[in-house]
């Protein structure tokens, strides 16, 4: 049974500031790369298999680290940065981590969080989620599931707002990705005990490009989302 922490962290109403991020979808919509539910599914599939796998792997590894006597937070932080070549995406991940940290400190106070923040004052979102799941007694599977789901649910809800898509059809598109979610979670959990340098590192060329492009347009014109 999933822990309450996992349910709370994956809830869109969790006050972690995740709702201001579209995961590159707003820029994809601006470039007419995503126009409806069909190509939204294709976008989400690519996102899940790349950025989603990286995030799920680091969340699973963080859940393991939370229960370890000598957690390697600095190495996990550095390796996740190295797998996020887009500066805009590193910022977005740390912004969400910082938002989540406030709520996490109030709900799950623990020396584990202090150690994570000591490695970097703005922890990456997947590390924070994995750490909280670990603190609350959850396992790496839950941490990976939560983060893999968030990798697609955030952009999907952004698509509803940006394109006026039918929320019921979009929800069905997310649920249709269950086999890919399971595959990504299995890969992430299989890697969770490895050294941070050996965690999966799939690149996502278009996501990097969209993230950089979003930052530029965000400065020049009004955008709904921060990333």
């Amino acid at each position: 049974m999933p822990s309450l922490a996992t349910l709370v962290l994956s809830d869109a109403r969790f006050p972690g500031g995740g709702h201001v991020h579209s995961g590159g979808l707003e820029e994809a919509v601006a470039r007419a790369l995503v126009t409806g539910v069909g190509d939204l599914g294709t976008f989400l599939h690519g996102r899940l298999r790349t950025a989603g796998l990286v995030a799920a792997s680091f969340a699973a590894a963080a859940a393991v680290a939370a229960g370890s006597a000598e957690p390697c937070w600095a190495a996990l932080d550095a390796e996740l940065d190295a797998r996020t070549p887009s500066a805009a995406q590193r910022d977005a991940s740390r912004a969400q981590g910082r938002g989540t940290l406030r709520a996490a400190r109030a709900s799950w106070p623990s020396p584990v969080l202090d150690a994570l923040v000591a490695a970097h004052p703005r922890p990456h979102h997947p590390l924070l989620v994995g750490a909280v799941v670990g603190i609350a007694g959850g396992d790496p599977v839950e941490a990976a599931q939560c983060v893999a789901y968030l990798a697609v649910s955030g952009p999907a809800s952004a698509a509803v707002r940006l394109l006026g898509l039918d929320p019921i059809a979009v929800n069905a598109a997310i649920v249709a990705m269950a086999p890919t979610v399971d595959e990504v979670v299995a890969l992430a959990v299989a890697a969770a005990d490895r050294a941070p340098a050996d965690l999966p590192a799939p690149g996502a060329p278009m996501l990097d490009l969209l993230a950089q492009s979003h930052v530029r347009h965000h400065r020049e014109q009004v955008r709904l989302f921060a990333s």
């Binding site: 590159g24 294709t42 989400l44 599939h45 690519g46 060329p205 278009m206 969209l210």
Partner: peptide, 15 residues
């Protein structure tokens, strides 16, 4: 970073 080719679903994705 690892780059991958040969997966039709990935190659088609605008991500």
């Amino acid at each position: 970073q690892t780059q991958e080719l040969g997966d039709a679903g990935l190659a088609a994705s605008s991500a």
